[in-house]
């Protein structure tokens, strides 16, 4: 099964809506059997890219292939080998899980009996076997997400697209999805294209990541390499207000290789950060600026993101991660 082409490629992919360019010349290559993390804040162009790769939207220009098939001219073949769970869960609330799964299976060419058997098997897999009599509208957010994943797996796809699969889920459900994503990748050899706004998720799952910001890929590579690429560790000093932070940043320039200010926090990037802490503290004492906190960090993906986009990631993800009112 590994002999099949399970790659995803994009060459200069562009999507315009009138004057607005949602995806602006995106290129990348995802290798067979890889988990690829596509990271970016809301509105960065993640979902639009997924829509084009999965044949739901036509690119304005550029070219993309899934499993070697062109997403525009061979859309039918792409649909046969791609499994897709979109950010907007595509379930009719009036239908029951077995109806959804069997229709899906039959549309992929299974006999009714095979489709039903596959449906039961998948419900087992996503732990929904006990809830087959319930309309999907009565499902909780986590249950719907799992059922949506099951729908994407009906035809045993070669390539799986997961658009923000854990947004809005509680930590336990999120772990479940992660476990299943890893299993699908390892045991079934699926190539997985995963978009997320959680850096932790990308760090945890992805072999390689690309960060997309305002329709452009800002950086691409292995998470470890990207973090290492930032080089320095950092000393992070948080102040009571933004003005103080800005003043402190000015003053601390000689103490760091590079400085970044993010609201009330000043980040000093330098090698041997720990050894430099006493100097920084005494300099602050001299000028009477009192920090609220002072921490020492190794670079994280969050830092990578901040560096390439000039904005923080975590706060945005926290906003989006409101628990489901299920």
């Amino acid at each position: 099964m590994s002999s099949r082409n399970r790659e995803i490629t994009a060459e200069n992919l562009v999507k315009q809506y009138g004057d607005f360019t949602a995806v602006d010349g995106v290129s990348f290559k995802v290798r067979s059997g890889e988990i690829f993390g596509f990271l970016g804040p809301n509105g960065a162009g993640k979902s639009t890219t997924v829509a084009m790769l999965t044949t739901l939207a036509l690119p304005t220009s550029g070219r993309a292939t899934v499993g070697g098939f062109d997403v525009v001219t061979q859309a039918g073949q792409v649909r046969e080998i791609a499994g897709v769970a979109l950010q907007e869960i595509g379930l009719d609330p009036l239908m029951k899980p077995l109806e959804l799964l069997t229709i899906q299976g039959q549309l992929f060419g299974m006999s009714r009996r095979d489709a039903l058997a596959r449906a039961r098997q998948l419900l087992e897999l996503v732990k929904l076997s006990e809830f087959t009599d319930r309309r999907v509208g009565k499902y909780s957010g986590g249950m719907r997400r799992r059922l949506d994943l099951a729908l994407a797996l009906v035809h045993q796809p070669d390539v799986l697209f997961l658009d923000e699969p854990t947004t809005g889920l509680d930590p336990a459900s999120r772990r479940d999805i992660w476990t299943e994503v890893r299993r699908l990748n390892r045991e079934e050899g699926m190539t997985i294209f995963l978009t997320t706004q959680y850096l932790e998720e990308a760090d945890e799952l992805a072999d390689r990541i690309a960060i997309i910001n305002r329709g452009k890929i800002a950086v691409e590579g292995k998470p470890e390499d990207l973090k290492r690429g930032l080089g320095a560790e950092s000393i992070n000093v948080t102040f009571g207000d933004e003005d103080t932070a800005l003043q402190a940043a000015d003053m601390l320039i000689p103490h760091a290789d590079r400085i970044q200010t993010d609201r009330r926090t000043v980040r000093l990037y330098l090698n041997g950060a720990a050894a430099a802490v006493p100097n920084v503290v005494s300099r602050l004492n001299e000028t009477g600026m009192t920090p609220v906190s002072l921490t020492l960090t190794q670079p994280t993906l969050d830092d990578v993101f901040l560096q390439v986009t000039g904005q923080r990631f975590a706060s945005e993800a926290a906003d989006a991660a409101q628990p489901e009112a299920a």
Binding site: T55, G76, A82, I89, L91, Q104, L107, L151
Partner: peptide, 10 residues
């Protein structure tokens, strides 16, 4: 979203 879900099948 079910329309999309159907559109993703052959």
């Amino acid at each position: 979203g079910y329309w999309d879900k159907l559109s993703l099948t052959p």
